[in-house]
Design a protein around this nucleic acid. Structure first.
Length: 430
RNA sequence: GUGGGCGUAGCUCAACUGGCAGAGCACCGGACUGUGGCUCCGGACGUUGUGGGUUCGAUUCCCAUCGCCCACCCCA
C-alpha cells in the first residue's frame, strides 16, 4: 500500500453498504417513534461558537477541556480577532441555543424536538467510540407554564425510548435510573462525599485517590473490584435530595410503574455533563465492550438560563447510534435490502426492452436490477442469484414474439410464462 | 495523553531456530452457445504498511515511523 494514499482521518470511518441499510433502518424506526410521540425535527449547525459548549457542558469537563475540535477562525478585519469555533461534541447545547435564539418559548406549549446527526470528540478511538460519531436525540423543553418541569415529561421520554428499543428488537438492555438532585442538593452532597472519602481514599485505587480530590462523584463510577465495599459504604445522593427533587423522582417512578417499564435505581449513576439536575438515566447493553452505555440523558432545568435564556426546564437524551447499530448486528438483525426482481435481457439489442420493463416495474414500487444483453444467460442468472433477487425475468426474442415473459422464482427454481401485463401483479403477490 | 496487541492477495489467515511468499473464501474464464445455486478444470491476484539496519540471504531479528485494534483517563 503506497503511503501517499489518502485515508479517512483517525477516528472517522466510511459507512458502506450493506451497513448503511442498517443505519437507515435505525433512522427510520427512530423517526417513526418520534412521530407518534409528536416530536419534530430540528437541525442545528455542526459548527458552533466555542463559548456555547464552555457555558453549557461545563468548562471543567474533559469534553470541553481537552476533547473538542476547536480553532480560531480567520479574523474579518486586521484589527479584530477571529471567533473561536468548535465542532459540536453533543447536540443539546445547540438545540437550547436555537430555542433561545428563535424565542421558541413564545410558541404555544412544549417544544418537543429531535435530531439525528454527527457529533465530534477528539478522543482516542476504541470500540464503539469514534471521533465522528452519530447521535439520535430528543429534547422536551419549555417555560414552566408549559408543564416542562413535570415528571410526566421524564416518563414520556423513557417510555418512548423503551418503545424504540423494543421496536428495533434490541434485547438485554437495562434502564439505570437515578436522581442527582437540584444544584443545591448536589453541592451539599459533594461536600459530604468529600468528607466521607477523606479517611478511606488512601485504601482505594490510584484513580480514586485522585478523583476523591478532583471529582468525587466519579469515585462512584469506579469499576475496580477491591474498591466496591468502600463505595458501597459512601453516602448516597438519594439520601440527600431536597423535598422538591425527591417528590419529582417519586412522581417519575409512579408513572414508570404504571407504564410497566422495568428500571433499576443506580445510586452510583452520575453523569459527566455539568448541566444535569434531578433525573439522570442510561440504557446499558451487555457485550459492547467497555463502552456499554447505549444511550444516556437527563434533566437540565437550568441550562436555558445558563445560556442567557428564560427559565425553561427540559429533559432529553442522546442515543449513541454507532453503538446501537453494533447491538443490532450482535443480535443478527436482518436489515439489508435485496432486489425484488432481476431483469435478464437475452441477446443483442434487448437492453432497450429490459430498460422499458424495469421502468414499468419500478412504477409499481418494486426494487429492480437489470443485467446487460452482452452477457450470457448463465451469467445473468448467476448475477441475479448473487444479488439475492427474489425473481428473474428473462426478456429475449421468444418472449417478445409471444408476449409471454419467463418469470423464474430464484429460491424454488420454478419458472413459468407470464403475460407481460400481469408481471408486476404476480411479483407483488408473492 | 498513557498502556498493551496487531499490520502478509479484495476478505479470513498460514509460512518451524532467518532459506523460492501459500491456503480457504471471493473474483474472472471454461466444461455447459436460452437457465443460477452443486461439481470439476484453468486464470488473475502481493514492492509482506513505510523507511532504515544486521545478514550471503529478512515476512521472520533490530531501530524508527505510520496505521489499525483493545483498554485506561473520560464519556454517548
Amino acid at each position: 500500500m503506497a503511503q501517499s494514499l489518502i485515508k479517512a482521518v483517525r477516528g472517522t470511518r466510511d459507512l458502506l453498504p450493506p451497513d448503511t441499510d442498517t443505519w437507515n433502518f435505525v433512522d427510520a424506526a427512530a423517526r417513526d417513534c418520534f412521530r407518534v410521540y409528536n416530536f419534530h425535527e430540528i437541525r442545528t449547525p455542526i459548527l458552533e461558537d466555542l463559548a456555547l459548549f464552555q457555558r453549557s457542558v461545563g468548562e471543567e469537563t474533559d469534553i470541553v477541556a481537552k476533547e473538542m475540535f476547536a480553532w480560531e477562525d480567520r479574523a474579518r478585519a486586521e484589527s479584530e480577532k477571529g471567533q473561536w469555533l468548535a465542532l459540536r461534541p453533543e447536540n443539546t447545547a445547540g438545540v437550547v441555543r436555537a430555542y433561545i435564539e428563535h424565542k421558541l418559548w413564545e410558541r404555544p406549549g412544549l417544544q418537543k424536538l429531535f435530531y439525528i446527526g454527527p457529533q465530534f470528540r477528539r478522543e482516542r478511538p476504541q470500540k464503539g467510540r469514534y471521533r465522528q460519531f452519530y447521535q439520535i436525540g430528543a429534547e422536551i423543553i419549555g417555560p414552566p407554564s408549559s408543564g416542562s418541569e413535570s415528571p410526566a415529561r421524564d416518563a414520556e421520554v423513557l417510555d418512548m425510548l423503551a418503545a424504540l428499543l423494543d421496536r428495533l428488537g434490541i434485547e438485554h438492555v437495562s434502564l439505570q435510573l437515578n436522581s442527582v438532585g437540584d444544584p443545591e442538593d448536589r453541592r451539599q452532597y459533594n461536600v459530604r462525599l468529600r468528607e466521607a472519602l477523606e479517611p478511606v481514599a488512601g485504601q482505594m485505587c490510584t484513580d480514586c485517590r485522585r478523583r476523591a480530590v478532583t471529582n468525587p462523584l466519579r469515585v462512584l463510577d469506579c469499576k475496580v473490584p477491591a474498591d466496591q465495599p468502600i463505595i458501597g459504604s459512601l453516602p448516597r445522593i438519594s439520601d440527600h435530595l431536597g423535598p422538591a427533587a425527591r417528590e419529582h423522582f417519586e412522581g417519575l417512578q409512579r408513572i414508570l410503574q404504571r407504564l410497566e417499564i422495568p428500571y433499576s435505581i443506580n445510586a452510583r449513576l452520575v453523569r459527566g455533563l455539568d448541566y444535569y439536575v434531578r433525573t439522570v438515566f442510561e440504557f446499558t447493553h451487555g457485550a459492547l465492550g467497555a463502552q456499554n452505555a447505549i444511550l444516556g440523558g437527563g434533566r437540565y432545568d437550568g441550562l436555558s438560563e445558563a445560556l442567557g435564556g428564560p427559565r425553561s426546564p427540559g429533559i432529553g437524551f442522546a442515543i449513541g447510534e454507532d453503538r446501537l447499530v453494533m447491538a443490532l448486528a450482535e443480535a443478527g438483525a436482518a436489515t439489508a435490502r435485496a432486489p425484488d426482481v432481476f431483469i435478464a435481457p437475452l441477446g443483442p439489442g434487448m437492453n432497450a426492452e429490459a430498460a422499458r420493463l424495469a421502468h414499468e416495474l419500478r412504477r409499481h414500487d418494486l426494487i429492480v436490477e437489470t443485467g446487460d444483453d452482452s452477457f450470457r444467460l448463465k451469467k445473468l442468472l448467476e448475477t441475479a442469484a448473487r444479488l439475492g433477487a427474489h425473481y428473474a425475468v428473462i426478456v429475449g426474442e421468444d418472449e417478445l414474439a409471444t408476449g409471454q415473459l419467463a418469470l423464474k422464482d430464484l429460491s424454488s427454481g420454478e419458472q413459468r410464462q407470464v403475460p407481460r401485463e400481469e408481471l408486476a401483479a404476480r411479483i407483488i403477490k408473492n
